[in-house]
Design a protein around this nucleic acid. Structure first.
Lengths: 194, 194
DNA sequence: GTCTATACTGGGATAGAC
DNA sequence: GTCTATCCCAGTATAGAC
């Protein structure tokens, strides 16, 4: 049903646009990443971008989706022997890509509007993330007084909130503070390998 | 040095603009709150707004500053018998003013740019807030394994992050989850009135 | 000091030519 | 299917009227 001759070029262009968008965001920050500038990197006009993605917001939503694919949270968290360590690894990695963190935070706010193209994306992603957290963490530490969903919401909230603090003051130690929180949430025993 | 006759009108206008900005943000959301629309509510031209505030971003920063004055965090937290209860009360109150929460969150992100007029505002406000938290909470619960500053950063992060979750899904119980977090962070004893 | 009129820039989006 | 030409609206800077 797909992949008829002329589709190939379009698919390639699409990828190229997403890469370029990421590039520009990384260099100039999200706020100054205009369609014009991204289009220049690709070598086309702004309208060409809107031909593939309906709007600027949809384009940036696609960037986030792509990020979730190739360096996504879920795999890292799940594949790691230690779920907590995998989660911290993701946070450490985010330190290296400030542009993406800014994009993510910005869209988190804008997507509050149900009409925003990223609204559903955030709803679904958050729920997936939280159920992953709830499963992973509860198996490690049964002793917490918090029910799994509340625990998951807290971890997610702290993680998102720390990103805000870190963006304004990059000296903030995101991984360290998250580790301290998780540690503090484990009342008694640490690791019983039983 | 101030308050010569003709100042009165200007001061009043300034207040009027801030009120109108809040009004428009509340009704149309932050993203769609244009200078034009705010100006129309006041009954002037957009240029008039820029006469009082240098730019749109400065105007919105002023809105936040005004909020901090008359329904600010610090007094509530400090005056309350129970510091934790005062803090939760503020969060409960925020549930009633979604426009302000959206504005705050949006500027939190935009202010990451050191050139943004709200950059210093957030740096200072955050530090003040955290030292308040650090003092209040440590006096109540000495037993936590967390040092006061880390504890304060966590509380602040969780609070900000919960707002993001709540904006996308208003059924999220911000006060309840924050209470659960604070409770979980108190390992053993609850309140020793000693 | 307060403000309108006006014009300029740059953004995202649309219609329609290739 | 691709992109140029165009449009509209945002925020802003300036000049000068009250």
């Amino acid at each position: 049903m797909a992949a008829r001759g002329s589709y190939a070029k379009g698919v390639a262009r699409r990828e190229e646009i997403l890469e370029s968008a990421l590039d520009v965001i990384g260099r100039k920050g999200y706020q100054n990443a205009s369609l014009k500038e991204i289009a220049e990197v690709v070598g086309v006009t702004p309208a060409a971008l809107l031909h593939y993605f309906g709007s600027k917001e949809e384009l940036f939503t696609a960037v986030l989706r792509k990020r979730d694919e190739h360096d996504g949270l879920e795999p890292s968290v799940l594949d790691a022997q230690d779920a907590v360590e995998g989660f911290l690894e993701v946070i450490r990695h985010n330190t290296q890509v400030p542009g993406l963190v800014a994009l993510f935070s910005r869209l988190s706010v804008d997507a509050a509007d149900p009409a925003h193209p990223a609204h559903d994306y955030f709803l679904e992603r958050s729920e997936r993330l939280r159920s992953t957290i709830a499963e992973s963490f509860s198996s490690e530490q049964q002793r917490t007084t918090l029910d799994p969903d509340t625990l998951a919401r807290i971890i997610q909230a702290a993680s998102d909130g720390l990103q805000l603090q870190w963006m304004i003051d990059p000296t903030v130690d995101m991984p360290g503070i998250m580790a301290a929180l998780i540690d503090a949430l484990q009342p008694a025993a640490a690791k019983t390998t039983d």
